[in-house]
Amino acid sequence: MDLVVLSGKGGTGKTTIAAALSELAKEVTRVDCDVDAANLHLYYEGKDIAREDFYGGKVAYIDGNICTRCGSCEHVCRFDAIEDFRVMPLACEGCGACTLICPQDAIELKPEKDGDVYTTQLDDGILSRAEMEIGSDGSGMLITLLRRIARKYSDDETLTVIDGSPGIGCPVIASITGSDAVLVVTEPTQSGLSDLERVVKLSRHFDIDPMVCINKYDINEDMGKEIEAFVEEEGLQLVGKIPFDDLVMESIHELKPIVYYEGSSAAKAIKDMWLTIKSLIF
C-alpha cells in the first residue's frame, strides 16, 4: 500500500505531515522522494545499511593528451559549456555534439555521478532516500529507484509513506505512478490553491482521486473556505483541517514528529486525519 504525500509548492508542511503519518502507522516503509531538499531523515537517528552511487546524466570529457586545441567543440556547443578546451560540468548537458564534431576523437561522454542513494534502518522500518550532488536534479529515474528499493523491504500489507517531490514535473509523476493513494497537503494561500488545482489534475490522470488536507487552515479562513469549496466541487475527500500550532515549529526544532506532543492541536488533527485516511485506503 503506497501513500504519496504531495504539495504543489514548497513549505506547506508536506514533510511534517508525512513524518507524522508514518509514526501513526505501526509497520511502515518511508521513501523520501523530495530529493532536492531531502529532509525526512533528519527526524531519525537511523543507520545506513546500504549505499549506492546514482548515475543519471552524462558529461563530456576532453582528453588533453589528444586534443589539438582546434576549438570546434567550443564552437558547436550550444550551452556555452566549453571554454579554453575544458568542459564545465555544471553547464554541460551531455548531448554529445562535441564528441561527434571532434576531428581527433578526443572527447567522450562519461556517466556523471548525480548523487548517493541510501537505505537507512529505523526502529520501525526502513527509509529509502538520496543525497544529490549540487546542480543535479531529481529525475523520474531516481524516484523509480528509491521506490524499488523500498519495495524490496515491504510486502503488500506494509504501508509505504512517500514524501513526494514538489511541483508537477517528471519526478512527481514517478512518485504517483503505481501508488494506491495520494494525499495533497495545501495551505490557505493564493499560491496554495493554484498549486492544489494542478496537482489534483495530475493525480486524476493516474486514476487516483487525491485526498486533500489544508495545513494551517486558520491563518486565512476566507482562503481556507475557498479551498474547501474547490475540494467539494471536485468531489474529493477533505480528510484534514490542521490548525496553525506553535508546537509544530518546536517539533521541527527538536526534530521530534509532532504526534509526540501532548496537547498539540495540530497533532490531534493529524491523528483524526489518520483515522479517516485509514478508513478510506484499507
Binding site: M141, G169, I173, H205
Partner: peptide, 9 residues
C-alpha cells in the same frame, strides 16, 4: 495515452 506529462528528466 495517459496524461501528457513533461517528457524530460
Amino acid at each position: 495515452s495517459g496524461p501528457a506529462h513533461h517528457g524530460g528528466h
